[in-house]
Simulated assay, not measured.
Amino acid sequence: MRLSVRAAATVAIATLALAGCGGSSSPSGSGAGAAPSSGSSSAPSTAGSSAPSSGTSAGGDLKIGVAYDVGGRGDQSFNDAAAAGVDKFKSETGATVQEAAAVNGESDAAREERLTQLAEGGYDPILVVGFVYATALSKVAPQYPDTHFAIVDSTDAKGANIANLTFAEDQGSFLVGVAAALKSKTHNVGFVGGVDTPLINKFERGFKAGVEAGKSGTKVQVKYLTQPPDFSGFGDPAKGKTAAKGMYDAGADVVFQAAGGSGAGVFQAAAAAKAMAIGVDSDQAKTAAASVKSVIITSMLKKVDVASYDFIKSVADGSPLTGEKVYDLKAGGVDYATTGGQVDDIKSTLDDYKQKLISGAITIPSK
């Protein structure tokens, strides 16, 4: 397998300059209201890449590889948060960036090939975005011990040259759960998860706990869009819209989505129902389509941009991160958004809960 993958990688590397990635060349997911383009490929994209400019600061000679999750750039959520950290480092140093995105339904072998292409191409560090890459990274990283890898949202891939960048999603979700309960007039809210996985269950668990803390007895409707191994729930706005519409029709007036690009559909349903919605990962009141921004009362911020920047900079500084690093409330890794001012009236309450979570006065159930 290793020989066949490397052979494929050699061919792909020879055509990198011509390769394209749908996720990085045009918006997809929540911004465009569409699933990932079938034009996405396992070959890294040169879109957005540039050679280091003269006079760049330390790190300008780095060749950074990025393997995005389904949807790639343009999902205005998880992948775009990671991309923001990469872009920040690139703008500061002039580093070269090579990108590729996963395609829904692809195999671990395809993901392994994508990571191999980047490693064979001399990209170091390589940022791997999403737990779906864990199996592939576990195979590829040991073959390139001098290459520094980081994977977001997984501790399943471990190694001396792997950093595991994880988050306290339950803490951030708790805060927006409190907000949902306090803003709801029907005492009925909803949670839409993209794919029924332990990671997204963590969002649900925190949200439910926050709702109960905010207003005990508030009903929480729950719907997952797909079940593994079908990960299209992270890139299907139509499914998100249908799920959220059902919740609004059943009496919910606030719906929190942890569904990647499918969240665009949740926002559309909220607008149609003249109801409220809560974004995820990025501050989506800033990034969503203009027609739905007003329905987004807050977003659960998962600062993947901070984690991706930290990792890349650690390699540039000669002290690369390895092992697990948890970005929780205390570390500034999760939070809630205030764009639009729709939670200003409850901000003091939310901040009080934030401090209680940080101090340990409040703990979130593990199940």
Rank of each mutant, 00 (worst) to 15 (best):
S366C: 02
G72A: 13
D61I: 03
A35E: 08
G260H: 11
R73W: 14
F191P: 03
M276P: 00
G39R: 10
V326C: 01
A209V: 03
A180N: 08
P228A: 03
D328C: 09
V343P: 08
Q268K: 13
D153K: 11
A34N: 02
G190N: 08
K325C: 01
A290Y: 03
G31L: 12
K202F: 04
A58S: 14
G20K: 12
A238V: 02
T155Y: 10
V343W: 07
G193R: 11
A181Y: 01
A136R: 12
A32N: 11
S282Y: 01
A270F: 07
P27K: 04
L225H: 06
G23F: 05
E324Q: 14
K245Q: 15
T96L: 05
G261L: 07
G318P: 06
D170Q: 15
A179H: 01
S53P: 02
S232A: 11
S319A: 13
Q117K: 08
A43D: 07
P44D: 07
A100L: 12
M276G: 00
A316E: 06
D335I: 04
V334L: 10
T349W: 01
L165E: 04
I162N: 03
V132K: 14
S53N: 05
L16C: 00
P145T: 14
P36I: 02
Q98H: 03
S294Y: 03
T339N: 07
K330G: 13
A84Y: 06
P44N: 05
T339L: 02
V176L: 03
A119R: 12
G263V: 09
D253P: 06
Q342N: 09
V128R: 13
V140L: 15
F207W: 01
A272R: 08
E169C: 05
G214R: 02
A14E: 14
S232H: 06
G33A: 00
A337D: 01
S53Y: 13
A8I: 05
P36W: 03
T186G: 10
G22H: 10
V326Q: 09
E120I: 11
L62N: 12
K274T: 04
D170V: 10
R205I: 03
